[in-house]
Design a protein around this nucleic acid. Structure first.
Lengths: 195, 195
DNA sequence: CGTATACATGTCAATACTTACATGACTATT
DNA sequence: AATAGTCATGTAAGTATTGACATGTATACG
């Protein structure tokens, strides 16, 4: 009945970057550059994107009527685009947020993959590999904990209906995850050492 | 000096699927279909691939001289390709395995992203979302633990130089990770409930 | 005044991965 | 004998992501 030329429906897939951007702009107007910084500094523990992905996505969201921008000057000549949500954009974001999701596939992990192949390594190689990972993970945990002690929530402010509460719970989750990874590495190292 | 037409060098990037396949074939000859099953049943907690990705990769690895195959018959007519490693393939795999890696970027996680935006949800929505995730995670943990009690290592067999030891440590890691995710969800739920 | 670093926005080519399309044989059950 | 489920191998089109290419402005510091 319907001729399938130009079938643009094709299902929306996940489009997670789309909603991540909408959610961030919902917190307040931002430029593409701002988004890039937030992704790669604040959200980096659960989502991120390069500017080469962000700028085309912003273009697309504009075309879809979910965001608009005004051009503002930074200094004398430098133009930047300050994006805000449209009503449609806000609605799209809230619908995405409220939707209940099935578990995603378990994230891929190259080091776990290498661990799976552990029999093809010598004891020295194994310990060297695990210790190298352990050092890096400990370093990472240290940074996360340093961020945490600076956080208003760690200082006893308890209001759940603020953006800071979201920041706080995902940071706490990142720390717990990191500690568990370290525990796993440590247990493996001890077991292998004593073999 | 050098004309940059057809510059195929371009760095090998990660090519993790390549090495995952080499590692599996190193454990024993397999068909593409076998690989698909192993990825999506045994390795699914840290690596996986669809058959539509596996078959082209096998073609590529053949072309690169890292694997070879013999065609064997399953029944009367059905041909399947049984792949084995070449010397070059074995070497490539062992080099990859021994290489020490920097930490990968933290895996993306849609639910953590949604949690970050928690202030845009009502208390009821939040609790419903977190409880839904919690139920699914508990279900998943139950399955992992069921696999574990069946595992030879959980029954006290302690020889580290077997494929089973690799299976065991990654399974243990998956269980620890799942427990921590559940702990995080539970803590969040309690904090929000009591608010 | 130079210069390094951050601000700012884009494109392009390639890799990685997913979904759907496509086909056919084998095996266990009814 | 039909049929459902698994075995078996592929391709095509599209989305997601990366790394390199490309360009220019603003600001802080010495």
């Amino acid at each position: 009945m319907i001729y399938l030329k130009n079938r643009k429906v094709m299902s929306d897939r996940m489009r997670t970057l789309k909603y991540a951007i909408l959610g961030l702009i919902n917190r307040g107007s931002m430029t593409g550059y701002d988004l890039m910084k937030v992704f790669n500094m604040e959200l980096v523990n659960f989502w991120y994107a390069k500017h080469s992905q962000i700028y085309p996505e912003l273009k697309k969201l504009s075309d879809e009527g979910l965001i608009t921008y005004e051009t503002v000057l930074q200094g004398e000549k430098l133009e930047k685009k300050l994006y805000s949500l449209t009503e449609a954009g806000k609605e799209a974001f809230l619908n995405w947020l409220a939707k209940q999701d099935l578990l995603e596939p378990t994230p891929k992990d190259i080091f776990r993959l290498k661990s799976y192949f552990i029999e093809s390594m010598t004891k020295e190689e194994i310990l060297s590999q695990f210790n190298y990972q352990l050092d890096q993970r400990k370093e990472k945990l240290k940074k996360l904990e340093a961020t945490m002690i600076e956080h208003p929530y760690a200082k006893g402010i308890i209001d759940i209906v603020t953006p800071e509460y979201g920041d706080y719970i995902v940071l706490k989750g990142a720390i717990m995850r990191e500690i568990t990874y370290i525990d796993w590495l440590t247990e493996c190292i001890n077991e292998i050492k004593n073999y």
